[in-house]
Structures are given as C-alpha cells and as structure tokens.
Simulated assay, not measured.
Amino acid sequence: MTQLYSIRMRAEQQALHVSGAEDIVSAQDIQASAISFITRALNHAPEKIVITMEKLDTEPIRLPLLPLVTCNVKTTESAHSAVRTLLSSLKICDEAVDTAFSLIFNDRTVAGAYLIDADSGQTLRLRNSKAIVRVSRFGLLDSIAEELQDTLNKHGLTHHRVKEALTLASKVCSSDAVVAELCVSDDPNYTTGYVASKKFGYVRLPHIKKLGNPQGGRVVFLKNNASLSIVIKFLEKTPVLFDTIPEMKGVMDLDEITGSCNS
C-alpha cells in the first residue's frame, strides 16, 4: 500500500476565509501540492495561510463521482425556483428549504456546512450550537484527475471550483444519511451554485445570485433518523478517493433533469 497523506489549505483575510483547497496525495506529491495550494492562496492577498498535512492511517474508500449536469436557468429568480423544485422532488420540506436560504443568503460566513433535518426544517444542533460540518479528507485518484479536467474543459467548465466542488459534493452525497446538499459560493465574482444528490447528481445552477453579492454558504439536508455524530465523523474524518469519471450531460432544462429521473 502506498502511503497517502491528506493535505489541506485554508487562507484568511481579516479572519475571513478567502481560499481553500484539499487533496489526498502520495508522499512524493506533497511538495508540489503544497506549492500549488500556496500559489492559489496568494492570488487572494491573504493575511494568513495554513497548510495541514496528515498521514492517513486507513486506506481511502474508493467511490465514483456524481454525474454532472448544468440546469438551463437565465435569472436568479429561475435559479432559486429550480432549487426549490429539485429539493421538493427529493421530498425535502418547504420549511427546510426556507431555512437553507436564510442561512445562505445573509451576511454571516461560516467555515463549513449547516446540517438541516429534511423532514422538519430544523437546524440541527450540537452542544447547544448549530451543527456545522467541515467536509474533509477527499481527493481524486491520480489516474483520472487529468482526464476529468479535460472532460470538464470540453464542456466549458474550466474554473477550478467545478472540479473541487464536484468532488466535495460527491463525498457528501455518498453518505446514506444525506438527502441533498445546496451550495452557493461566497465569492462575489462566482455566481454558479449547485444542488447535489444521489437522485439527480451534481446539478449546476448559474445565476444563483447576482454578480458582486458576497453572500453564500452550504447546507446539507439529512434524513430524519440520521445520527449526527456518525455523519460528521464520516464527512470530516473518513478518507475517500474518487476513481470514476461521471457522466457529463451538458446543459438541460429543469424538466428534463427531473423527468429523466422520474420516468
């Protein structure tokens, strides 16, 4: 077994997160990954950069990435409507969706994802505080990393966020306790969000917010009987390597996305 390491980067400015990256690499690739992460962080003029490297004690689980599709939405209103339709199709209650929007579209920024009960809409809590999970210890198998980027490039998805968000969302949705994830970047210049689930895959949603809007965040919707401790341990601690490139469906109308899964 090749010894593997989890390597993570977090950059801050005025105590706010401005850049991050994550991978699982072999010992010989640690230096190159660290240099790459630091170079990216420096593009954001950070006041603080933290690089964390940890030797993995267990072999990562091997999983396929979620299939990817871009929803054909042209306005923020239609993107938000599409979010509601997708989440409703997954039997996530309206109260849970309302709560998710209120947590994402405000001026508070948190490092991680809120956990919400999909059946009740309740924001789940740990030790009297809102439960927040920082998904970690995931990466791409070396043999598919370049091919995946080439495949994304062919669909015009050249921004590094796409590959990284797809990988993160694929780990989140691999948990049997997770119904879906909703994400909106807090980067004011990046206006595409996503809804991810086992049923619909990774659904990109352009125009999910107006250009220049610094609000954003992530919410993970859990099944009613989910064990918070087990879910958080898996998402934060269990190493996962993705070894299969997903199906790329290009741009589709919302009814095509939902219909293809309901037919």
Results as ranks from 00 to 15, higher is better:
215 Q>I: 02
214 P>G: 03
212 G>Q: 05
203 V>K: 00
220 V>Y: 14
227 S>L: 07
209 K>C: 05
221 F>S: 01
218 R>L: 01
215 Q>A: 13
227 S>P: 15
225 N>Y: 10
223 K>G: 11
225 N>L: 04
223 K>R: 13
215 Q>H: 13
221 F>R: 05
205 L>W: 14
223 K>P: 12
219 V>T: 08
215 Q>Y: 08
220 V>P: 02
207 H>Q: 12
226 A>T: 13
207 H>Y: 14
204 R>I: 14
221 F>H: 08
211 L>I: 07
204 R>F: 08
217 G>A: 12
215 Q>R: 14
221 F>Y: 14
200 F>E: 00
202 Y>N: 10
198 K>N: 15
200 F>P: 00
214 P>L: 09
212 G>A: 05
202 Y>R: 02
224 N>Q: 14
223 K>A: 03
208 I>L: 14
207 H>R: 12
216 G>E: 04
199 K>D: 03
210 K>Q: 13
209 K>R: 02
220 V>G: 06
225 N>T: 09
220 V>F: 14
216 G>Y: 05
222 L>C: 06
211 L>A: 13
208 I>E: 03
215 Q>S: 13
225 N>K: 13
228 L>E: 04
224 N>L: 05
217 G>T: 07
211 L>H: 12
220 V>A: 03
220 V>S: 06
204 R>A: 14
228 L>Q: 09
204 R>W: 02
227 S>M: 03
201 G>I: 08
216 G>L: 04
220 V>N: 09
224 N>H: 15
